Amino acid sequence: QVATSTVRILGMTCQSCVKSIEDRISNLKGIISMKVSLEQGSATVKYVPSVVCLQQVCHQIGDMGFEASIAE
């Protein structure tokens, strides 16, 4: 089973930030795809909930120095 959710990301300033986040999160087990939008300050994450949760994704992004939260 696959889920798609949006994560809000604060602190991104350039495409390099976007690429860094996409590269790191895409390597997590259970992540199918991730598309980060600098303009919208968010990311669309396609993932397998039984393998990885959005809290883990937000935590990983937080470790990179950005502020991440699950969009309502």
Rank of each mutant, 00 (worst) to 15 (best):
residue 36 V to F: 05
residue 31 I to L: 02
residue 31 I to T: 00
residue 44 T to W: 13
residue 72 E to G: 12
residue 16 S to Q: 11
residue 42 S to C: 11
residue 68 A to G: 03
residue 68 A to K: 01
residue 13 T to P: 00
residue 27 N to Y: 07
residue 14 C to R: 01
residue 33 S to W: 09
residue 59 H to I: 15
residue 15 Q to T: 08
residue 53 C to A: 10
residue 60 Q to G: 05
residue 10 L to Q: 11
residue 1 Q to V: 11
residue 62 G to K: 15
residue 40 Q to M: 13
residue 42 S to A: 10
residue 35 K to C: 07
residue 28 L to M: 14
residue 18 V to K: 08
residue 20 S to F: 06
residue 19 K to V: 10
residue 45 V to P: 00
residue 38 L to R: 05
residue 15 Q to E: 12
residue 3 A to D: 07
residue 22 E to M: 08
residue 30 G to W: 06
residue 28 L to I: 14
residue 13 T to I: 11
residue 25 I to W: 02
residue 34 M to T: 04
residue 13 T to M: 11
residue 67 E to S: 14
residue 20 S to V: 09
residue 18 V to N: 02
residue 14 C to K: 01
residue 28 L to V: 08
residue 4 T to H: 07
residue 54 L to H: 02
residue 56 Q to Y: 15
residue 25 I to R: 02
residue 59 H to E: 15
residue 42 S to R: 11
residue 70 I to R: 04
residue 64 M to K: 03
residue 27 N to Q: 13
residue 59 H to W: 14
residue 47 Y to R: 00
residue 3 A to M: 13
residue 65 G to F: 05
residue 57 V to N: 01
residue 56 Q to P: 01
residue 69 S to N: 07
residue 67 E to F: 14
residue 39 E to L: 10
residue 40 Q to R: 15
residue 34 M to I: 15
residue 21 I to H: 02
residue 48 V to A: 08
residue 16 S to L: 10
residue 44 T to N: 08
residue 48 V to R: 14
residue 63 D to E: 15
residue 44 T to H: 08
residue 68 A to C: 15
residue 30 G to L: 06
residue 43 A to E: 04
residue 62 G to Q: 15
residue 28 L to P: 01
residue 51 V to F: 07
residue 13 T to A: 05
residue 48 V to T: 07
residue 3 A to R: 13
residue 11 G to I: 06
residue 55 Q to D: 09
residue 9 I to V: 06
residue 49 P to Y: 06
residue 3 A to S: 13
residue 6 T to F: 13
residue 38 L to M: 06
residue 32 I to K: 04
residue 46 K to T: 15
residue 20 S to N: 14
residue 12 M to K: 03
residue 12 M to Y: 03
residue 11 G to N: 05
residue 36 V to Q: 00
residue 19 K to G: 05
residue 61 I to L: 10
residue 63 D to Q: 15
residue 55 Q to K: 13
residue 28 L to R: 02
residue 70 I to N: 05
residue 52 V to M: 07
residue 68 A to Q: 01
residue 61 I to R: 03
residue 39 E to C: 07
residue 38 L to K: 01
residue 35 K to N: 08
residue 57 V to A: 02
residue 12 M to Q: 02
residue 15 Q to S: 11
residue 26 S to W: 05
residue 68 A to F: 06
residue 52 V to A: 04
residue 6 T to D: 06
residue 7 V to K: 00
residue 27 N to C: 06
residue 40 Q to G: 10
residue 61 I to T: 03
residue 10 L to W: 14
residue 63 D to M: 15
residue 22 E to K: 05
residue 13 T to S: 09
residue 47 Y to E: 01
residue 58 C to H: 07
residue 62 G to A: 15
residue 57 V to M: 03
residue 45 V to Y: 04
residue 6 T to H: 10
residue 16 S to C: 05
residue 25 I to Y: 03
residue 46 K to A: 09
residue 42 S to F: 10
residue 72 E to I: 12
residue 6 T to P: 04
residue 65 G to C: 04
residue 4 T to A: 04
residue 61 I to S: 02
residue 41 G to M: 10
residue 65 G to D: 02
residue 51 V to Q: 11
residue 69 S to E: 09
residue 61 I to C: 02
residue 54 L to D: 01
residue 10 L to T: 14
residue 24 R to C: 06
residue 17 C to F: 04
residue 6 T to K: 11
residue 16 S to E: 14
residue 31 I to E: 00
residue 57 V to Q: 01
residue 58 C to M: 13
residue 16 S to K: 14
residue 8 R to G: 08
residue 50 S to Y: 09
residue 20 S to Y: 06
residue 37 S to D: 11
residue 9 I to P: 05
residue 35 K to I: 09
residue 21 I to L: 05
residue 52 V to D: 01
residue 60 Q to S: 11
residue 35 K to G: 03
residue 38 L to H: 03
residue 29 K to S: 12
residue 20 S to W: 06
residue 5 S to M: 10
residue 2 V to W: 14
residue 7 V to S: 00
residue 16 S to H: 12
residue 55 Q to R: 09
residue 45 V to I: 11
residue 15 Q to C: 05
residue 46 K to H: 09
residue 10 L to Y: 13
residue 14 C to I: 05
residue 7 V to I: 14
residue 25 I to A: 01
residue 22 E to F: 08
residue 39 E to K: 08
residue 52 V to N: 01
residue 22 E to N: 05
residue 51 V to D: 07
residue 33 S to F: 08
residue 69 S to W: 14
residue 71 A to M: 13
residue 20 S to Q: 15
residue 42 S to V: 11
residue 41 G to N: 12
residue 14 C to W: 04
residue 8 R to H: 13
residue 4 T to K: 08
residue 62 G to S: 15
residue 30 G to K: 03
residue 22 E to A: 06
residue 57 V to Y: 04
residue 56 Q to W: 15
residue 42 S to I: 13
residue 45 V to N: 01
residue 29 K to W: 12
residue 47 Y to A: 00
residue 39 E to G: 07
residue 64 M to H: 01
residue 67 E to Q: 12
residue 49 P to W: 07
residue 14 C to V: 03
residue 30 G to V: 07
residue 17 C to I: 05
residue 51 V to S: 05
residue 59 H to F: 14
residue 3 A to K: 14
residue 53 C to H: 10
residue 18 V to Q: 05
residue 57 V to R: 03
residue 65 G to Q: 03
residue 35 K to D: 07
residue 35 K to V: 12
residue 54 L to V: 07
residue 3 A to W: 14
residue 9 I to M: 00
residue 58 C to L: 15
residue 48 V to Y: 15
residue 51 V to L: 13
residue 6 T to A: 06
residue 44 T to M: 11
residue 72 E to T: 12
residue 6 T to Y: 15
residue 39 E to D: 11
residue 52 V to W: 03
residue 34 M to D: 00
residue 44 T to E: 11
residue 44 T to F: 12
residue 50 S to R: 07
residue 60 Q to F: 15
residue 3 A to T: 12
residue 66 F to E: 02
residue 19 K to S: 10
residue 61 I to K: 04
residue 57 V to K: 02
residue 24 R to Y: 07
residue 69 S to V: 11
residue 34 M to Q: 00
residue 65 G to L: 04
residue 23 D to L: 10
residue 5 S to G: 15
residue 46 K to Y: 08
residue 1 Q to D: 15
residue 72 E to M: 09
residue 7 V to Y: 03
residue 15 Q to H: 10
residue 31 I to P: 00
residue 43 A to C: 04
residue 40 Q to T: 13
residue 21 I to E: 02
residue 53 C to Q: 10
residue 19 K to L: 08
residue 34 M to R: 00
residue 16 S to M: 13
residue 71 A to S: 11
residue 69 S to A: 08
residue 10 L to R: 15
residue 25 I to V: 07
residue 38 L to Y: 09
residue 38 L to Q: 03
residue 66 F to Q: 02
residue 41 G to H: 14
residue 10 L to E: 10
residue 62 G to I: 15
residue 41 G to C: 09
residue 12 M to E: 00
residue 7 V to F: 10
residue 37 S to Y: 09
residue 44 T to D: 06
residue 25 I to E: 00
residue 58 C to R: 10
residue 57 V to C: 03
residue 55 Q to T: 09
residue 17 C to V: 04
residue 8 R to E: 09
residue 29 K to N: 14
residue 71 A to P: 13
residue 45 V to D: 01
residue 9 I to Q: 00
residue 52 V to G: 02
residue 4 T to D: 04
residue 29 K to V: 13
residue 7 V to L: 15
residue 66 F to A: 03
residue 41 G to R: 14
residue 50 S to M: 07
residue 27 N to K: 13
residue 70 I to M: 09
residue 22 E to T: 08
residue 66 F to G: 01
residue 13 T to L: 10
residue 24 R to M: 07
residue 64 M to L: 14
residue 43 A to P: 03
residue 37 S to K: 05
residue 64 M to W: 03
residue 59 H to S: 15
residue 4 T to L: 11
residue 9 I to R: 00
residue 47 Y to P: 00
residue 30 G to S: 03
residue 13 T to N: 05
residue 70 I to V: 12
residue 61 I to M: 04
residue 37 S to L: 06
residue 22 E to P: 02
residue 63 D to V: 14
residue 46 K to D: 06
residue 10 L to I: 13
residue 28 L to S: 02
residue 48 V to C: 08
residue 11 G to H: 04
residue 30 G to H: 03
residue 54 L to F: 04
residue 34 M to W: 05
residue 25 I to P: 01
residue 38 L to E: 00
residue 34 M to A: 07
residue 22 E to V: 09
residue 55 Q to H: 13
residue 71 A to H: 07
residue 39 E to S: 10
residue 46 K to S: 13
residue 68 A to I: 06
residue 17 C to L: 05
residue 40 Q to P: 04
residue 24 R to V: 09
residue 14 C to M: 04
residue 71 A to E: 12
residue 70 I to Q: 05
residue 16 S to P: 04
residue 41 G to P: 00
residue 15 Q to I: 09
residue 13 T to W: 15
residue 40 Q to C: 09
residue 62 G to V: 14
residue 32 I to Y: 05
residue 66 F to C: 03
residue 33 S to I: 05
residue 8 R to W: 14
residue 7 V to T: 00
